[in-house]
Structures are given as C-alpha cells and as structure tokens.
Design a protein around this nucleic acid. Structure first.
Length: 512
RNA sequence: GCUCCGGUAGUGUAGUCCGGCCAAUCAUUCCGGCCUUUCGAGCCGAAGACUCGGGUUCGAAUCCCGGCCGGAGCACCA
C-alpha cells in the first residue's frame, strides 16, 4: 500500500533488498527481434510446411511471400518444404498447364527447392475415400438444394431437407454422383458442422461439387466429374502430408474453423496456423489472370514476362536477384495487417546487391550527333566500375559523338560541357550541333562548373531498353554485347539486364 | 444482415501475449551537407508515428469497453 507513493528509484532499492536476483532482469535491455519470428515448435519436431498455389496463372511477386517465408522457416528449423498444386477446379479457375513448371522453376530460382511436389488432381481417389468415411459416420450428406434455397435455410439456422438423410441414403446418392448420374449444380456433398452456429460462414459447408468439364492435365482429363472444394481438399492434404505449420492469408481464417470440423470427426490434430494480411503493390493495379491472358493474346503485352507485369518471370528477366526478394519478404514478416508496399523498397534491396557487380557503360537514348570540329582522334579508357578494380573499356573517338537529346536541348551557343571521361568542349553552333575542343583539364571543368554528360561513340550499337514505363531506343557502347544475361549500369540512366545481343541489343530495365 | 481479423512516421517493421526499460526500434522514402567525372553507394545531419474517446492503474502503444477506419468470410473459386 505504501509502495504506491514511492518513486521507481525507491522501488529499485527495495527490490534489491528483497530479491536481488531480479535486478539483473530489470537492467537487461530487450533485444529487438530480427527477421522472422520464432515458430511454435514442439521438442525435436521436424517442421513440414507448404506453398499451395492454384496454377491457374503464373507465379507473381505476391506468390513469393508464400514461397520465401514458408521455405525460410523450413531452412531455419530443418524439415520439409512441399509445393502442392491445389488444382481441383477444372472450370472456374482452370489450371494453366505451363504454370506448373513455372511455379517449380521459380521456387528453385528463389532458393526454395521443394522437397516434394504434390498435385491434387492426381490424388482425387484419396479425397473420395475420406468422403465415404465421413458419409458413413454421418458427418456428410448429399444436398440437392439449389444454392439460393440452401442459403435461405442456412441464414435461418435451419437444416435443409437433405441434412437428415441416413448414411445409407447418402452413400447411394454419393455413388450416383460419382457415376455421373446428376447434372452439374444439382447436387453437392456437404460437411455437417453446426447449422445454428452464430457465424454463418461456418454452417454446413460444401465439400464436393459436380464438374463435367475435363481437367486440362492430360493425365487426368475427364476421369472425374466430382471435384473437391478447397476446404476439403486442403484439409485432407494437410493431414496426409503431415503438415506441422501453415502460414497463409487471413482470408482463409474461416477455412481453418471449417476444416477443424473434419479434423475433429477424423480424430486429427490441426496444424499450427499463422496468417498474413493482404499485400498490394503501389506500382501495380489489379491484374486478373483472365484479363491478363486476354491482354497478352491481344498483343498489349509481349507475354507473361513483359516488364510491366508483376510476374516472377518478368521480375527475373529484369534482373532482380532472388536474394533481394528473399530479404525483402523476410523483412516484411507475417503481420495480419493489410499492407501496401512500394517496389522502391525491393529496388533498394536489389541495388545493394547489384551495384558492386554491374559494369558501367554509356547508353544514349534519343541520340543526337555532336561534332567536335577541331578534335584529334583519340582513345579513352573509362573504368568498368567506379570503385571495384575491374579494368577498363576502350572507346575510340574521332570527331563526332552522340549525346542525349535532352542534354542537347539544354545547350546554347557558348555552353561549355564535359564529355564524361573524354574532354571539355564549347558549343559553337546549335544547327548543326557543333563544338570546339576545350582541353581535357579536370580543373577548368570544375572551376567553370561544366555539366558532365555521357555520350556514345559513332560506332556504337543500337540498344533498346524495355521498361515498365515504356521503351527507350538509342546507341550504346559496343562492349555491352559482352554482358549478355548480366546486369549493367547505363550511366545516368539506370540498371538494366542485357537480355539479347544481335545486330541490336535488347535490355530490360531493372531500376534506377 | 450475421461473423471474424486488423489499425505504430510517406511506406514497411520492432515493441502489444506477460503494463514501468518506449520522450517508441530498424529499413526504406523525402530533405539538407560532404564525397564522387554519372547514377547509385558511402559518410554526416534533419524531418516524420502509437486511429479516436472513455475506463482500470501510481503508471497504458501494451489490459477492458465503445466509436471510427480498413480488410475478409458467409461460393457448387482458390
């Protein structure tokens, strides 16, 4: 009671008297957690985690969160990382055949080598077995209600007329379903939960429906006309595959509650779950897979790796390194807050990695000729990198160079400027653009505060840069051709990945 | 309508479980300065936040209640 009136200092003195061992705890500073939070792991437990996409479109930057975080935990604790294709909808979210390989390939690229690859459409008989079991136990029933009718019952917390059918009747109906005797939408298998549950989302949910469209995978084709829905398929698989932990979007929080009914019926233990919120990228609007496919087919985009798209294929092609994405995603962590992030942060991460390895070159966009009327032919040897000792490139210059139009536009007769790594000039004529040689003294350049511009020799090669903000065409040093598949920096422009080298060089813009 | 999450600087993030080390961490962004023959990097400096209102408490970012805002679920999509 007296304690209340004392100052913290007095408490400390008292504490020292009664419990000196606690003083140390008082004085130790809490260490801020770095990286991913610890997983709730049981003693000696091997973690098994998965990334479970529907391959109905290409993996995107959004997918990388699931890939990186799940695989990172597996790396951290030792265990198994599984990629599972939840491709049980041949119709509405019809899988895209190429995407299966893309996902696996992009996982590997991201350093998330899957220990196991599981395709749900290969395992339908397993789901059927469990469906039977649940029907026998009286936990599932075939419902013939129209969707709207069922909703009415459900909203009223009332069982639909089919809910009380006997297991035997249900089994009969189920067999007919499997035999294809019912039309699409005329019957579904439901799992009984609690029809009076206060949360309408948890009342009797659908587990299987009838789809008479063939599956795009040739191995599967039209083998099945009854397909499981996510809550069922996922529930069974997570158990079958021995999942210990699940991390996924919080939109699937109710899923867990629904699936828990199945787990309880079958006497299983649900994996530990963590959720994250929605992620939006500032730079990218909404891309629907179907919309994108149309736009690509219509030629609006060059393909799934068009630099304007947020697909992993595009990002890779642009020269973003997997380590940058990993760091970025791990830094994000797994909060339940919906977030909206900017590519700038990813670019900053990538820049740190790429800056020291990228060689520097000149690339002049919108080139205009500049003649230096009295220049002697010469050779200049600018360093390939400003700080790393990686040698030089050699450029021969006669009496003409290209400079960017936007630099030329700022000039007028009498302007003095420095051609970077070459020499100083003074403009003598604007049309045609001509200059006279002014020596190569750095001192006078500094004293007169000349602008420094980059340039390109007359024997340069045509370069086209594809960027999210449009294309740039111009001339670059011919040595750029030796950098195929590497990221270079075009000075005063930005980092680019050299994508192809023919008569013309094509580069993908990475970032500033 | 019913139900469930969430809300810390421009953007992310730590801290919230278990109230006092928090006049709140780190990164990025932005703005200055230095350095540099580009840009970036680097170095120095600056700006910038606990959604609001009540309550509990000696003490609240942290616990409780309510409002506001945002997201999600209630699909024969995943």
């Amino acid at each position: 009671m007296e304690v209340a009136k004392e100052t913290p200092e007095q408490w400390q003195a008292r504490l020292e008297a009664i419990a000196p061992e606690l003083i140390e705890e008082l004085n130790t500073k809490k260490e801020p957690d770095k990286g991913l939070k610890a997983l709730d792991i049981e003693e000696g437990q091997q973690v098994v985690m998965r990334f479970a996409p529907n391959p109905n479109g290409p993996p995107t930057l959004g997918s990388t969160r699931g890939i990186v975080v799940n695989s990172e935990y597996v790396k951290k604790y030792g265990g198994k990382f599984i990629i599972r294709f939840d491709d049980t909808d041949p119709q509405t979210k019809r899988p895209m055949l190429e995407a299966y390989d893309w996902y696996v390939d992009d996982c590997k690229w991201l350093g998330a080598n899957p220990d196991e690859i599981v395709i749900a459409s290969d395992r339908v008989p397993i789901y059927y077995d469990y469906a039977r079991k649940l029907i026998e136990m009286g936990h599932a029933y075939v419902c013939f209600c129209d969707g709207a009718d069922f909703k009415k019952f459900k909203d009223a917390k009332e069982p639909c007329p089919h809910r009380n059918a006997s297991p035997e009747e249900n089994m009969e109906h189920w067999d007919k379903m499997l035999a294809g005797e019912y039309e699409e939408k005329s019957a579904v298998l439901r799992i009984k939960t609690d029809i009076t549950h206060k949360d309408p989302a948890l009342r009797d949910f659908g587990a299987f429906r009838i789809v008479k469209t063939a599956h795009p995978r040739l191995e599967v084709g039209d083998k099945y006309c009854v397909w499981p829905l996510l809550d069922f398929e996922g529930a069974i698989e997570d158990h079958e595959l021995g999942m210990t932990h699940i991390i996924r979007g919080k939109d699937l929080m109710d899923s867990e509650k629904r699936q828990t009914y199945i787990y309880n019926y079958l006497g299983w233990t649900y994996p530990k779950t963590t959720h994250w919120g929605r992620v939006k990228m500032h730079e990218f609007g909404k891309f629907s897979t179907s919309g994108l496919r149309q736009a690509i087919e219509a030629g609006e985009y060059s393909g799934w790796d068009d630099p304007r798209l947020p697909t992993i294929r595009a990002i890779r092609r642009r020269g973003i390194l997997p380590e940058a994405i990993r760091k970025f995603m791990i830094e994000l962590g797994v909060g339940e807050t919906d977030i909206s992030i900017s590519m700038d942060s990813l670019y900053a991460e990538n820049r740190k990695l790429v800056d020291s390895v990228a060689n520097r070159y000149f690339f002049v966009w919108d080139p205009v000729e500049l003649e230096i009327t009295d220049a002697e032919p010469c050779t200049t040897t600018p360093a390939l990198h400003p700080t790393e000792d990686r040698g030089c490139r050699e450029i021969e210059v006669n009496n003409k160079v290209y400079i960017c139009k936007e630099d030329a536009d700022k000039l007028q007769e009498g302007s003095k400027l420095r051609l970077k790594d070459l020499y100083n000039v003074e403009i003598t004529s604007m049309e045609p653009l001509q200059a006279k040689y002014l020596g190569d003294s750095m001192e006078s350049m500094k004293k007169e505060k000349m602008r420094i511009v980059h340039w390109s020799p007359m024997d340069g090669v045509p370069v086209k840069v594809l960027s999210p903000d449009g294309d740039f065409t111009g001339i670059g040093e011919k040595q750029v051709a030796t950098e195929l598949n590497k990221v270079v920096q075009f000075e005063r422009f930005g980092f680019c990945r050299i994508d192809s080298v023919d008569e013309k060089i094509v580069a993908y813009y990475t970032h500033k």
